[in-house]
């Protein structure tokens, strides 16, 4: 089965200029997203998940704060070659994004209908009447009851789950090829989280788009994603199908993450595994393998030489010396 590639990230690095010097938040990240799949990006806070996603949309100010390297290919064209002004034609139309906190991402003084209409009017140049029709259709699609009433309400009149549905409606209004969902359910209750994740899975199938799901919740990944990228300190340490990640993790960091969460079907008398230490700061990146100081299997080689991300099977790539030997 050949899969249609939507987006290819090649050797992406994002460097921030700060008072304390340049900080490389992402260092040489490469992955692909295919049509119709949900790609999970996992890792702890500060490992570069969100920076990766925001770099794909070039959301950081390139003049003063950030510097990008590498390539991001959308339909074979490098996003970094497009003039910044033309980026508007991609954001929201071809690639769109859903953020974590729906309340602060929605404009509190605009009716939700107007906010969903905005991308339709700008990108697809629809008239008012047509745009309203499409907006009602979108509200129905994301499962908001009584759409003709809700369309004229303000964000504060909706519950957290509803707001996140509106965010998804805005993101999908122009039928993008790729949806980036950055921790879309972190602020929500489990019952609402389940509904929103079901909606994302359902729309992913219905609209045949690619989804990048950024999350720190491995349980959500296990239930929704088809492929997973594990990040640590700005690098990909493992990439594999979801079953391989959980059944056959090769990188000690992936293994540590999986073992450290309590599982519903786990034994409560067994102690939880602990990854020792914490994620280092970006200006204290260790030599050699970045995970070596926290890794239980680290050798002298790990502390001096950086391993490459290497394929161990057609679907699994790992950045670890143990696997190479």
């Amino acid at each position: 089965m050949s899969k249609e590639e939507i987006l290819e990230v090649k050797n992406l690095s994002t460097t921030f200029r700060t008072e304390r010097g340049d900080l490389k938040a992402i260092d040489g990240v490469s992955f692909e997203v295919y049509k119709g799949e949900i790609l999970g990006v996992v890792g702890e806070s500060g490992c570069g998940k969100s920076v990766t996603s925001q770099s794909i949309l070039r959301l950081y100010d390139e003049k003063y704060t950030a510097k990008y390297d590498g390539e991001i290919l959308l339909d074979g064209k490098n996003i970094f070659d497009i003039p910044l002004k033309k980026m508007q034609e991609i954001r929201g139309a071809k690639i769109s994004m859903v953020f974590q906190d729906a309340l602060s991402s929605l404009n509190p003084v605009l009716k939700i209908g107007d906010q969903i209409m905005e991308p339709l009017r700008i990108h697809q140049k629809l008239g008012k009447k047509e745009a309203r029709e499409r907006t009602l259709e979108m509200l129905r699609l994301v499962g908001i009851p009584a759409p003709d009433k809700r369309i004229d309400q303000y964000p504060h009149e909706l519950s957290g789950g509803m707001r996140q549905r509106v965010m998804i409606a805005i993101a999908l209004a122009c039928r993008p090829q790729l949806l980036i969902a950055d921790e879309p359910t972190t602020a929500l209750d489990v019952t609402i989280q389940a509904q929103i994740m079901d909606l994302i899975v359902d729309l992913n199938k219905k609209l045949d788009m690619g989804v990048i799901l950024i999350t720190h919740d491995l349980a959500v990944v296990a239930e929704t994603c088809s492929r997973v990228v594990v990040m640590y300190l700005g690098q990909i340490v493992e990439e594999a199908d979801v079953n391989d990640i959980f059944d056959n993790p090769k990188h000690p960091y992936t293994l540590g993450l999986i073992k450290s969460i309590p599982r519903l079907d786990g034994d409560p008398n067994e102690r939880l595994y602990m990854i020792k230490g914490t994620v280092p700061l970006l200006n204290q990146i260790p030599n050699g393998c970045r995970f070596a100081p926290r890794c239980p299997y680290a050798t002298d080689k790990c502390r001096t030489n950086m391993p490459e991300l290497k394929a161990v099977s057609p679907t699994q790539k790992v950045r670890c010396w143990m696997v190479e030997e």
């Binding site: 519950s159 389940a194 969460i261 519903l264």
Partner: peptide
């Protein structure tokens, strides 16, 4: 029952039946 059925489990092989509650709190 509804609350427990919504909890995701870190096991990709498990298919779960969710009980979806109607309406808001």
């Amino acid at each position: 029952q509804a609350l427990l059925s919504a909890v995701p489990n870190a096991n990709p092989h498990e298919e779960k039946q969710r009980i979806v509650l109607e309406g808001d709190l």
